[in-house]
Design a protein around this nucleic acid. Structure first.
Lengths: 119, 119
DNA sequence: ACAACAAATGAATAAATGTTCATATGTAGA
DNA sequence: TCTACATATGAACATTTATTCATTTGTTGT
């Protein structure tokens, strides 16, 4: 993803002191990476729609596929992504599997995003 | 992106009443799409790092490039994305351009995400 | 007007991602 | 154990996206 330091401005660093402070306050790269990974999950309309739907309560894969107007397979793939990120959980009841939100963070994040949109 | 309704479960819709309720409560597709677009912006580690850096105050493109260990061009491209989404603003001072966060939403969104990560 | 420099832009490329189709897995009932 | 059905998985494909390189734009100082 990265390659090497940028030559950029030849006065090397324009604001060394400011940069030093930022550098010391910045979360470690790994944390930033994980954070980006999390938001990437929310960055797909199919997944966002799934999450919004689950705000109203648990639904099975079939219900979701009907709602999304997308293949059962597509929904299933996306549910796996959501499951891996611990955003949804599921329970089995006979042949059908019910998915629901894993915790309240999902709702908070969606709401914060919506607030920014609506303005 | 989509194609056609899914045949899926032959009993058509397993929970019609539940589905109907969800359908009526769900935000319009366009809104969900915009929301996903917003989160997509946060879904890249370079951009997240830029945003985090700007939490501490304004920085010029050069500073950011130095911080990211990425080309000036790459940073500039990403700043354009952030600018288009109204997440950052800028002011010019001579040859250099200073970028800063557009509003407080950015911080709220980042924090909500971090909360989910840290557990 | 010209040289120097910060930042922006465009084209090209490599990598990541979402969807579909086909198939496999797991569960329930005859 | 065989069939039916809900869900999961794998491979393939098309699209999106982030980066770099090369160049342009805009500003300052001479």
């Amino acid at each position: 993803m990265e390659k090497e330091a940028a030559p950029c401005c030849q006065e090397k660093e324009i604001h060394p002191e400011r940069l030093e402070r930022v550098r010391s306050l910045l979360p470690p790269d790994e944390e930033l990476y994980d954070l980006a990974e999390l938001f990437k999950i929310f960055g797909d309309s199919t997944r966002v729609k799934i999450l919004y739907a689950l705000l109203e309560g648990e639904l099975c894969v079939c219900d979701l596929a009907g709602l999304m107007e997308v293949t059962q397979s597509a929904v299933s793939h996306q549910l796996r992504v959501l499951k891996n990120s611990k955003l949804v959980k599921f329970r089995r009841e006979g042949k059908t599997i019910y998915y629901s939100l894993a915790d309240g963070h999902v709702e908070s994040i969606l709401n914060q995003g919506m607030e920014h949109i609506e303005e």
